[in-house]
């Protein structure tokens, strides 16, 4: 579904991604793990088109998209739930969700009902301003907003960041459910053990380079990963 070849991205003169190769097959959960500043968020932003690629190729369903605008990529089926939630604070929960479907010709009520079913607390609070939600609820809103675009590929940036363990389980449980419903997920996490546990495959990013890749379970068992990212 997604193939990334020799992708580089830079902020000014500082190169953040160096020749990243990555592949996501249809129906997979792929985890991207690595420490702070490894370039995970930059990679997702480059995939969404809000950060320009310096060089390299991004193929989505076989077609190059590295020059495509961010809004066109949403229309093609790539939606992102960004790091730090980034909800539209003054707008209501339901308006946030409706805006998630901004690129769709006919925003159907079914998707909204589906999101509310997945995160019932959002339905309860649908008239409330998004900024008055708790951190966990805002995270659900950010994921729900991305789902409203009816994406083929869902990019999730640090969905567990700053959440209580019980909520982390709930959010990652939702990710597994999305996979069962046929949505392909690229999951970025600092919480490497939790992410690799639900992932089909994983990549380890270090200072902008892919240093390891493999099946989720294999990476979990890899001594280098254990030492560097799992604190074992």
């Amino acid at each position: 579904m997604l193939t990334v070849e020799k992708l580089c991205a830079a902020y000014g003169r500082i190169t953040v991604l160096h020749d990243v190769d990555l592949r996501v097959e249809t129906g997979e959960i792929v985890a991207l793990v690595g420490s702070n500043g490894a370039g995970k968020t930059t990679l997702l932003r480059t995939l969404s088109g809000v950060q320009p690629a310096a060089s390299g190729r991004i193929l989505f369903e076989g077609a190059p998209i590295e020059r495509t605008t961010a809004h066109a990529r949403v229309a093609q089926g790539i939606a992102q739930s960004p790091e730090g939630r980034q909800v539209f604070g003054p707008l209501s929960v339901e308006d946030n969700l409706r805006l998630g479907a901004f690129r769709r010709r006919s925003p159907d009520r079914d998707t909204l009902a589906y999101v509310y079913e997945m995160f019932p607390v959002l339905a309860e609070k649908r008239r409330i301003a998004a900024m008055s939600l708790s951190g966990g609820q805002q995270q659900m809103l950010a994921i729900g907003r991305a789902l409203m675009a009816a994406p083929k590929l869902l990019l999730l940036d640090e969905p567990s960041l700053g959440l209580a363990p019980l909520l982390v389980d709930q959010i990652l449980g939702a990710v597994v459910k999305l996979k069962a419903e046929g949505i392909t997920v690229l999951l970025v996490e600092q919480n490497a053990s939790a992410a690799l546990a639900i992932a089909d495959r994983g990549y380890v990013l270090e200072t902008g380079r892919v240093v390891l890749e493999g099946r989720g379970a294999d990476l979990l068992a890899d001594p280098k990963v254990k030492e560097a990212y799992l604190g074992l």
């Binding site: 980034q86 539209f88 604070g89 901004f102 675009a149």
Partner: peptide, 20 residues
């Protein structure tokens, strides 16, 4: 109109939901 308010509230997020 909501997209305009959304752009005001959070430009990055507005771009990510597909607002030009």
């Amino acid at each position: 109109g909501k997209a305009l308010l959304a752009t005001a509230a959070n430009r990055l997020a507005a771009r990510l939901v597909g607002v030009n």
